[in-house]
């Protein structure tokens, strides 16, 4: 398989990216520019250098800065070698591989080729997507994917544009299309305090998804300081400002709200 792609990480024992024990492949490049992005190294499509700060030994806790390259070109065969290593864990736990990013749909040929290889190897697949991409790509990979981890952020398009840089129109259309076609969706709602976790936004989401039979599973992704922490390490400014975890809408209440409307709700991935 000659198809090559650009990835910035392969993570084993990924346990929050779909069912069971998984390997997550992070494809580089994302058309969105979310304020709360916790994978800033995944935005650009090409390999890039970041100045990363790490704590060095000793109780003094000095930060050491190091220029580090993120992203490398790999063949499908190369990532398959890594993916296949953990088959025993996928089989045992009902897990598999998750293609995440970035936005995996940004590299459609590479993604598709990898999905085909996974299917041939009997490995279940998930695609973690923002939903922002041409409908025909979703159509092409639909039968190769066991689960879409589908992010839904703001229903209000102005807000969506403000906080992610793109319109939600295509995202909602694709979601509708997938949800009509089958039952392969785990809807993921990032709970960004005051932005996505508001009463109005959640109500609008419920209104939108209720007529869609293919959506039964909803994951609430609590905002955590990992993103801030990472931005700090990457010497990037946070546009959100500091939000301490635990603020914002009460997760239990949100969970109940979705559960009462018949959804299987999970907190965390």
């Amino acid at each position: 398989m000659a198809t090559a792609g650009i990835i910035f990480d392969i993570k084993k024992f990924a346990i929050h990216d779909g069912p069971g024990i998984r390997t997550t492949v992070f494809l580089k490049g994302c058309p969105l520019d979310c304020w709360w992005c916790h994978n800033p190294e995944g935005r650009e499509g090409q390999p890039e250098n970041f100045c990363v700060r790490t704590r060095r030994g000793g109780s003094g806790g000095n930060w050491a800065e190091k220029e580090e390259l993120f992203g490398r070109e790999v063949s499908v065969a190369e990532i398959m070698t890594e993916i296949i290593k953990d088959i025993v864990f996928y089989d045992q736990s009902g897990g598999g591989v998750t293609f995440s990013g970035g936005e995996p749909l940004m590299q459609p040929e590479f993604l598709k080729a990898a999905l085909i290889e996974c299917q041939e190897s009997g490995i279940r697949t998930a695609v973690d997507t923002s939903g922002y991409g041409p409908a025909d790509i979703f159509d092409e990979i639909y039968d190769l994917v066991d689960l879409f981890l589908y992010d839904l952020k703001n229903m209000d398009d102005h807000q969506h544009i403000k906080y992610t840089g793109v319109s939600n129109e295509q995202i909602l259309d694709n979601l509708k299309m997938l949800a009509v076609r089958g039952n392969k969706i785990n809807l993921r709602l990032p709970m960004i305090p005051g932005i996505t976790d508001t009463h109005e936004n959640l109500e609008a989401i419920l209104e939108f998804i209720e007529p869609l039979p293919g959506i039964r599973d909803v994951s609430l992704l609590p905002y955590n300081r990992l993103a801030e922490d990472k931005l700090e390490r990457f010497s990037l400014n946070s546009r959100l400002g500091r939000i301490s975890s635990g603020t914002g809408n009460d997760l239990d209440a949100v969970t109940r709200r979705f559960a009462n409307r018949g959804y299987r709700v999970k907190v965390g991935g």
């Binding site: 024992f13 990924a14 346990i15 929050h16 916790h38 790490t54 704590r55 806790g61 992704l221 609590p222 955590n224 300081r225 990992l226 922490d229 700090e232 390490r233 975890s245 907190v267 965390g268 991935g269």
Partner: peptide, 21 residues
């Protein structure tokens, strides 16, 4: 490996504040 509410990461890779938390 530590779990950070919905995400897991290597502890040593986390910043000091998060580590303390």
């Amino acid at each position: 490996i530590v779990r950070v509410a919905g995400y897991s990461d290597y502890f040593v890779d986390l910043g000091i504040d998060l580590q303390n938390e």
